[in-house]
Nucleic acid binder design. Sequence first.
RNA 1: GCUGAUAUAGUGUAGUGGCCAAUCAUGUCGGCCUUUCACGCCGACGACUGGGGUUCGAAUCCCCAUAUCAGCACCA
Length: 478
Amino acid sequence: MHQKKERSTELPPLPDAEGGVVMRFAPNPSGPLHLGHARASILNDAYIRRYGGKYIYRIEDTDPKRVDPDAYQMVREDLEWLGIGISDIIYQSDRLDIYYEYARQLIELGGAYVCTCEAERFRELKIAKKACPCRTLTPEENLLRFGQMFDGTFIEGQATVRIKTEIDHPDPAIRDFSAMRIVNSTIHPRVDATVYPLMNFSVAVDDHLLGMTHVIRGKDHIANTRRQRYIFDYFGWKAPHYLHYGRMSIEGLVLSTSSMHQGISGGIYSGWDDIRLGTLRALARRGIRPEAVRAAITEIGIGETDISFSWDNLFAKNRDIIDKESNRYFFIPEPVSLRVEGAPDQIAEAPRYPGDEERGYRKLHFTGEVLIPASEMKDGGMIRLKDLFNIRITSDRKAEYAGDSLADARAAKAPIIQWLPPEAAVPCRILTPDGVLEGYAEAEVADFAGRTVQFERVGFVRIDSVEKNSITAYFTHR
RNA sequence: GCUGAUAUAGUGUAGUGGCCAAUCAUGUCGGCCUUUCACGCCGACGACUGGGGUUCGAAUCCCCAUAUCAGCACCA
């Protein structure tokens, strides 16, 4: 009859988007991208794919103090990994003259003034809803001061361009915010300049000039949206549609670029791809696929609620993808060797992927001795060595053959465990967020550098590097 | 303090006045399948922040309370 409403797996529609959209991803190049950036970039990307249009990657490098020169390249790599379809790349540091020109115009219009008050003093006045003396200067006087910001008359901290709002605006965050400042204590890696726009100014100018139709950003920008509207209004520009999604925290993780930076230089983390970090490169190294990140982010959507990102949800998406692709192998953590008495030599055949004959079998040659995980060393009970036979542990390093019958093992509720012939075992270590797991893996694993495999009864890992006689893997998830 | 936003199961979501004693995913537990504690299949568990209104009828609208978050930088 009336079928249940179609479950919407899609993001909500955007207003005025049917004819195509122009959107942007605009990070500050202070480090590589992390999960927080992934949300911004993927959400925008999803809408552009849906409606068609342009995706502008705009690098907001207007604070020389917060530019990490390496970040320019890292961010591009990260976007590529994520599969974001960029149509244009804009460097704000290439556009300083444009911002200067618009600032000059705004001063002429009487929409901005050059304030020489100390920051602290201005703050007090602002809280008291009082204008500072600079506010009443004429456009001519302001233009003169503006020129002096460039010629060295003023130095860092001595002058700032402010946008005129209402000095008694109910929201103190709005009152006469800054638009342009001097920085001459730090040299910009790309340009020779001492006067820089502040984010609200360059963003407003660029969003207009680049024809942005929709802006999706975090709700920490709500106040900025209101501030930027003043600039749109002064120039008579039409503002884009703004959407603000909620704050996203991540279980047991610090996402701030600056604290990651500190941890790296302090030696706590091995680098930007340390698996304990929430950077995309760390996820990639662990074997998380970009499609999984995209799926998890899209599912979260653009809600304004604050959320906490759950690893479980991401891992589930990732498992969907990598389970089918990952061959199965044995890995013996904390191995102990066992002499199995009374067992015939034989070759075990274990499927590379259960149920998929095409992938064939690994052959493990048993000749009397096996490596098993120390945690399985329990006296007495029956154990089945997977794809081989049953044993019973008799003493410290010995076990006795207990038949081939799988049915017996089942009846005895024997654990079915992974094992390896010592001759076929290659030293392997698995790096997990909690530490290192040392052990041995099947030699064939070495063929899968850069890919994921599943170590049976341990979990999925990405084979990170293969040396002559050792393998390093990163733990993905169970 | 001021300004603004949000509040559905452990987590993430659906739901815009009646098909909701609330969706889906994940998670946990149980079962089936299986020579992995994987995958797959079946089942169970688990939520509308609280209080007032409006209405024949509210998770959905209004008000208040509470909680959380964000902004109040010459960062983005």
